[in-house]
């Protein structure tokens, strides 16, 4: 096994890991703020992918130009979903430490969205040819598939913007305050439900970004979310619930494991390695790599 191959495997792993991380980012944000595991996250990804798919398919735009439409649309979708569906349940369970009913609501949303997509678009796999599909960028002998490379850049930009937003804007500060202690934040005059709506909207908008990143090289179908769901959960728990760097590093770790180990063992077995690493991390650092030991 020569060095070139390992280096190419590392490149692929990092590129793949970047969109895994991006997919997990929305999930970790929503959990960090609302303290709710959003089981509909995969379906939000699916909605993001279908929205991006139809925009590119119907208008022939560059998939990254579609971001301009997909991101606001998905933000509104997430905002509405939280405001109309999840909020009433959250209010009803105000005094409950762990609002489990909300988890059931998000599971319901997952089923409804997936089946609506099945009804509207059918079960078939769809791929749209974009201007970047199948394009590569060569650096010496190393191959960088352009869609994945752009995905990497978009992931970096998105994370940077998100961190900046949370650190320096008033709304960002409110979101952080609500995530630290929702009752104290309410006492300081923060409308916690509005904060939740916005956090959920941002989470959905990130799912929309993932949709735009994925469609140049991945296919869309109604249950595509399930493919990424389990991965996202592992990444979020591995990195630390609610942690943004945790999601990105977790994504990179999973991507690298899948890519590098597959060069030595059958790729069916890389899943095993992923779970072993996952369990080992939980054993040594139960809060995840970047998680803080905090009583939610």
């Amino acid at each position: 096994m020569d060095f070139d191959i390992i280096l190419q495997a590392i490149i692929n792993g990092l590129l793949t890991g970047s969109y895994y991380g991006l997919a997990a980012l929305g999930l970790t944000l929503i959990f960090g703020v609302i303290k709710v595991i959003n089981f509909a996250h995969g379906s939000l990804l699916m909605v993001g992918m279908f929205t991006a798919y139809w925009i590119v398919k119907l208008t022939g735009w560059n998939p990254y130009a579609a971001l301009l439409v997909v991101v606001p649309l998905l933000f509104l979708f997430g905002y509405g979903l939280q405001g109309f569906l999840i909020k009433p349940v959250l209010i009803a369970q105000r005094d409950v430490r762990e609002p489990t009913e909300v988890i059931i609501v998000t599971t319901g949303v997952w089923y409804i969205l997936d089946n609506l997509a099945l009804m509207l678009f059918g079960a078939e796999y769809r791929v749209v040819q974009t201007s970047v599909s199948g394009q590569i960028f060569m650096l010496g002998d190393y191959i960088f598939p352009k869609p994945q490379l752009y995905g990497f850049i978009i992931t970096a930009a998105t994370s940077f913007l998100l961190v900046w937003f949370l650190k320096y804007t008033k709304m960002g500060k409110a979101i952080r305050a609500a995530s630290l202690d929702r009752d104290a934040a309410s006492l300081m005059g923060i409308n916690q439900y509005r904060v939740y709506n916005i956090a959920f909207g941002i989470g959905a908008a990130i799912a929309g970004i993932v949709g735009c990143v994925l469609i140049p090289f991945y296919y869309v179908f109604p249950t595509v979310g399930v493919v990424f769901d389990v991965k996202c959960f592992i990444i979020v728990v591995l990195g630390g619930l609610g942690s943004i760097p945790g999601a990105l590093v977790g994504g990179a770790i999973i991507g690298l494991i899948e890519s590098i180990f597959a060069q030595f063992i059958a790729s069916t077995w890389t899943e095993l390695i992923v779970y072993v690493v996952f369990l080992a991390v939980l054993f040594i650092r139960p809060a995840g790599l970047f998680g803080e030991k905090r009583d939610w």
């Binding site: 191959i5 190419q8 692929n12 793949t16 895994y20 493919v227 899948e258 890519s259 597959a262 790729s267």
Partner: peptide, 10 residues
């Protein structure tokens, strides 16, 4: 699988 690049690399 969400990514088959490792298989293709092999």
């Amino acid at each position: 699988a969400s990514d088959l690049t490792p298989v293709v690399m092999k």
